[in-house]
């Protein structure tokens, strides 16, 4: 199941663990990425709080946690090759995996069609 937030993140749910990244639309808007900072494995995320940071040459942008939960895995390749987050944000450029503490939080998120309509 693929979900999107209005903060331009995507979540792919497998069981109770969601893989999270930024959308291709967000990556295009941010431009070339030069630095990625991810949460630590085991960190507790609160929905709406800054969980990661992606930085272009010009600016730093927070990536907000789309749900509450515990970080189970991070994508080291995104840190070592920040450009991969820009070029393949919904594939190799995923950011982290989180075990959801409240799966009902997914209900408020958009599906693919709704997100495409949202970004116009």
């Amino acid at each position: 199941m693929l979900k999107y937030t209005d903060e331009h993140e995507w979540l792919r749910l497998e069981g109770d663990v969601a893989t999270v990244g930024i959308t291709d639309h967000a990556a295009e808007q941010l431009g070339d990425l030069v630095f990625v900072e991810l949460p630590k494995v085991g960190a507790t995320l609160a929905k709406g709080a800054a969980a990661a940071v992606v930085e272009s040459v010009k600016a730093a942008s927070d990536v907000y946690a789309p749900v509450d939960g515990e970080v189970t895995e991070i994508n080291d390749a995104a840190v070592s090759s920040p450009e991969s987050v820009g070029t393949d944000p919904q594939g190799a450029g995923w950011l982290y995996r989180v075990r959801l503490s409240d799966p009902s939080q997914l209900d408020g998120l958009m599906d693919e069609a709704a997100y495409r309509a949202f970004v116009g």
Binding site: G31, D32, V34, S56, V57, K58
Partner: peptide, 11 residues
């Protein structure tokens, strides 16, 4: 601000 080439490559 930038062209399709992108800031990094423009630089």
């Amino acid at each position: 601000l930038q062209y399709p080439l992108g800031l990094l490559k423009e630089h």
